[in-house]
Structures are given as structure tokens and as C-alpha cells.
Design a protein around this nucleic acid. Sequence first.
DNA 1: ATATTTAATGAAAGCGCTTACAATTGGTCT
DNA 2: AGACCAATTGTAAGCGCTTTCATTAAATAT
Lengths: 333, 333
Amino acid sequence: MVTIKQVSEKAGVSSATVSRVINDTGTVKEKTRKLVVAAMEELGYRHNVVAASLASNKTNTIGYVVPELHGSFFGAMMGGTEQALRAARKHMLIATGHSDETIEKAQIEALLSRRCDALILHVEAVSDDYLVNLVQQGVKLVVVNRYIAEIDDNCISLENVKGGYLAARHLLDIGHTDIAYIAGSLFKADGINRLTGHKQALGSAGIEYDESLMYEGNFQAKSGAEGIRALMARGKPFSAVACANDEMASGAMNALREMGKRVPEDVSVIGFDNVDFASYLSPGLTTIDYPVTQIGTMAAHWVLDRVYGKGSHEFTHVVEPRLILRGTTSSPE
Amino acid sequence: MVTIKQVSEKAGVSSATVSRVINDTGTVKEKTRKLVVAAMEELGYRHNVVAASLASNKTNTIGYVVPELHGSFFGAMMGGTEQALRAARKHMLIATGHSDETIEKAQIEALLSRRCDALILHVEAVSDDYLVNLVQQGVKLVVVNRYIAEIDDNCISLENVKGGYLAARHLLDIGHTDIAYIAGSLFKADGINRLTGHKQALGSAGIEYDESLMYEGNFQAKSGAEGIRALMARGKPFSAVACANDEMASGAMNALREMGKRVPEDVSVIGFDNVDFASYLSPGLTTIDYPVTQIGTMAAHWVLDRVYGKGSHEFTHVVEPRLILRGTTSSPE
DNA sequence: ATATTTAATGAAAGCGCTTACAATTGGTCT
DNA sequence: AGACCAATTGTAAGCGCTTTCATTAAATAT
């Protein structure tokens, strides 16, 4: 492997000067710069970022923890981050936490051992205190999709409550009064918050929330179908069902059809997230947009600004959900 | 930041010994090991992997280049890799190539500068020669979804031709003879190969391939819809359409419905890839399974075996597509 | 008890870079 | 021409670890 030393000898300068042209720091006369560049090319020099990181105490690497890699959700988020980071020549070290506290902590620890300059965390199992503590220790991190008051500047989150509200509000607006709800896992913040918003909308319309019209799923398509079957079995009629995410909504749609119900003529369905396949369904799924790519981009901007000082300060800490109207909702007959 | 030196002083041993307990190399008496561990905990020591990498000339990091991060395809692939790698305490540095030669090369170069022990590449724009050359320079890499004869041991690919064949074969088997084809971008190998398989199946059934029943899309849902409209406009009747991926198939299904055609009664549709939302469509999309997670896992096994010598040799270089029967195909009326 | 192995530790030389700081060069101004 | 300042380059001390080799301690053999 060619080193900076060899390049410096070939170019007849000191290694400090070679370092200067590589990093474009300090002042180097154009003539010597060319000399160095020529030497690098001739020797086939490849910069050793590991050594540079050790010496400079900077890795230009961002650690990223997400629950899972499969599915389209986290890919969209990371895609937003990557695009913004690439322009600044930063790289991403990716790890999955599997919504398990031990794994999440181990992954964060591993990323810190690798001296990531900053972390972007979509973690679900680790406690607020743990994260607050990290920040107090001086770890640069952004928490995504989670709000923690003590470190609110480090958080970027969606107003899940509002999203839940918006979905129910839409169904109410077009005339539904008997509205079922298929919730996500209620041990997750998203699951609870979306349901809370749903209840608020019902309340504001003077409709009492009925526990027997709620089914707790687990955010997977299958549980959406199971939810419909369970709900129907309870015998309580409903003309619309709000689901805590699009996967469950698609499962619900299929189950409804299997039971001979038409969507939206017999039952309206609304999802949450607006994942890419929502528009592929037929009819297209009415849903609540979770601007996931935008959140990923904002996390990147936070890091660029706060950690590398290249900021344009282009970020907000709370993003707004909004209704995406497609074909799975209509007024009750 | 606490260093190995400070730990060694606190524990009353040399830094070499501390290094030995951290890496579990060499022989350390149980008693001194405990001493060291206690000192590490007391001081809150965090191993500096960057320094370790420089000294050992190993980063335990695998560089990963994929075309894009969004969509569910690459997430599934990386998920397979991550799971296998995590068990071996390796990490993934992720970069996107955007199917652009300049970007792909720059990303590969960047990952090499960061001294990744190995690369996993899903690249589309870079030439075969370029990759062969890298291998000859001693770069450890796996090329995914691409076959290059000179470095066949470094390749893991799907038999795309066979997949295309299987899809058409299925349509033929259930009685279709007028079969349209919506191709992927034909400047990509996948696009060409899948179409080639399609043609072969037609040929083997004694049916002549008709250019006017082929539409070149671009792998996006929208182009599937456009394909249907273009095909219908040509006036040539068809009772089935094979699509080069699931996104286009879903676009095609929606366009067919908009034009008053039922799927599968009027027109059968078959996709390719078996992405996660294929089963969410209604009816479920009949498609060709591309075992993407498995491919990701195999890439990891290749690296573990060839680069770290932890191999169980659990990998094959070619994976087989297979038919997934759901509800979008049926015999013509 | 002494010689011979083997296990456990330490000393110290890097790994390839960055970055004060010092030294040199080349102008510019009186 | 002499003084002064800015631009350019070099010197050398780390960054925090791994690893070879030498050394010492412990175990086994004779």
C-alpha cells in the first residue's frame, strides 16, 4: 500500500504538504500541488481514511440504528439521509436494533467504539433516560420518530396523535359514525399515539369511543386481516375502519373482500404512513402521509449543522402528517 | 477519552495485556483478566476501533453499494446480509451508486479508502473489466445479481433468463397464447435477460414472438400502466401480460381495471421479484420469486468464509427463481 | 534439586496520518 | 537596502492501538 511518505518523496516535498493537498487545508502553492497530485497518480496512492481518522479524531461517519432493514419504511428514511450526507462526503454505518433493548444498546455502543461523529437513532426499546444520558456525556445524536422533552433539540418526530386525529376526522367528515380501529402494537409509542388521536377525533365529534370496535394488531398485514375477522365476529356494525399503518390496512382490505364486503362501498378503509405501495393497491389506499424521506433528510441536516457546522439550519423538529385522499374511503350508503 | 494505557496503569499491567483481554488473543491468566476488566469498567473504557484498525490493518467492516435505498428490494437484501454479519460482529458501511458509473466508482473508491475488509456490490453501470480489475488487484468483493465469467467465484446471481421463462411457461401452461410483455429497461441486464427467457418459452411452445406485444418500461409502476395503455392502443389482442417486475405489474393491473378489464378473468397478469407488497394486492399477485434476502445472506457467507475464514461454505453462486401462484392468473375464457 | 518446556507478561516499534510550531521564502514598504 | 509581514513548507510529536520479540514466572521432566 502506497503511503503519504512515498508520495512526498516522489514529489520532493514533506508529508505535511501532501496531507495539505489531500485535505485542501492550509496554503499550498499551485505548482507544488500539481507535483503532489502527479506523484499520487503515478504511485496509485489511495488515502487511508482510518489513519486520518485516528490522527484527526474525526471519522466523517454517521452511525445509523434502525429497527429493521426490510420493508420500505426504513429504506426511504435512510435514503433521505444518505442523499444529504453524500453531498457532504459523509458515510453511514448501519446497524439494526430489532426493537430489543440489549441489541439496541450493543449497537449504539459498537457505533461509538467505531468513533462515529454522530448517531441517528430510530430506537424503540431503550429508555428515555439512557438517551438523555448519552447526550449529557457529549454524544452527538438525533433521535428520530420519538420525542424526549429533556433533549428536545435532538429529536425529530411526527405528530402521531395529530395523524390519528386526521384519519378519524376524515371519516367523520364524510359521514361515518360507526368507525372501527385496528391499532398497532400498544406497547410502542406510535401505536398508542395514533390511537389517542383517533379517540380525540371521535370525542370532538361527540361520539363515544367504543372499546369493542378496537382491535390491537402488531403493524403487520396479517394482523390487519385478523382484526377485521375479530371485529366482524363481535357483531358490532361499522361502516369504516381506520388502521394504524398501511400494511394492516391492506390486510384489512383483503379480509373484507374475502367476507364479501366491497371497499369503499360497504366499508371505508384508511391507512397510515403512505408507504410506496399504498398507491399500488386497488383502489389506491387513502392514508395519512408520514413524510419519512423528509425526516431522514432532516436528520442529516441536523448532523451537518450541529456536528460539522455546515449547517443551513434547514430543519424542524416536528413534521406534520397530512391526509392523502385516494380511493378506499367514501360516504356511507 | 480513556485509553488502554490508563486502564493498564490502573490494573497494574502493561497495555499489551489489556489489548489481549480486549481481543481475547494470546494467553492471559484469569486473575489478571479480571483485574483488567474491573479497571475498564471503573474507568468507563470504550475501545477505540479506529486505532485498532490502523494497527491491525483490519476494519471488520464490509462496504455495501446498492443502487438505491428506497423501495423494499434492497432493504430485504441488506437485511439478509446484516443478520449474518451481526453474528460475526462485522459492520456495514452503506453507499448508493444510483446506477451511475461515476458515482459507483467514487463510492467504491471511498469504501476502499476507508479500508473495508470486503465489498458487496450491487452495481449496474460500472463495466465488467473494472470489477475484474479490482479483483485482480486483490480487492475482496462479491458482485451481486450479476455474472462475470472471469470472476465467477465472486458472483452471486439469479437466473433471470429462467425466471422470465418460468413466467411465460406458466401462462402458456394454463392456456394463453396471446401474451403481452412489459419489459424493464433494456439497457439493464435484468431487463434483457427476463425478456430473453420470455422469448425462449414462447419459442419452445411454437409461438412466434411478436414485437408489437412488447412494451419497454423502466421498472416503475407508472410505466406498467403506460405499457398497458400503449399495448391496448396497438389493437393487437392479448389475454395475458407478463411484467418484468412487480411494480410494473401493479401499475398494469390498475390500468387494466381503469379500462374496464377484470384481472384475471379478462387479462391475466404475472409479475417478477415477489416483493413484499405482492401479496397485499388484491387479488394477490402471481409472480416469480427472487429470493433477495437469501442472496443477501449468501453474500455475507461468502465474505465470512473467504475474507475472515469463518466459513461454513454455505453458499451457491446461482439462485433459482420459482413461480409463486396467487390470484392474478387464470385460464383464458 | 536442576534442567527443560510452556505459560504469562512487558517493552517497544510501528500502523499512516494530522497538525501545532518553527523555519524559510518572497514580497512590499520606507 | 533593511525591516516587516504574509505565504509556503518542513519538523516532529503524537493519535490509541496491535504485535513481535524478549523476558520472567510457573510447571513438568529428569
